[in-house]
Amino acid sequence: MSTILFMVAVALILSITFVVSYLWALSSGQFNDLDTPALRILKDDILKGTERKNHEQQ
């Protein structure tokens, strides 16, 4: 019995925490931009060939 009460309390606290943190995430703009992060990783930003040589000589 005491285990059940304990678990119910834990479940309540957890679910409230989740709702609150979700609302916070939504209102603080955590979900504002869901496109660019996925695209940004595709760009390599590396130096190759002559570009690299020129850069290294600077």
């Binding site: 979900f31 869901l34 496109d35 992060p37 996925a38 695209l39 990783i41 595709l42």
Partner: peptide, 12 residues
């Protein structure tokens, strides 16, 4: 994504 050169289906 790198191997396909395409963004992940859903970042969300």
């Amino acid at each position: 994504p790198k191997i396909l050169n395409a963004p992940i289906y859903s970042y969300r």
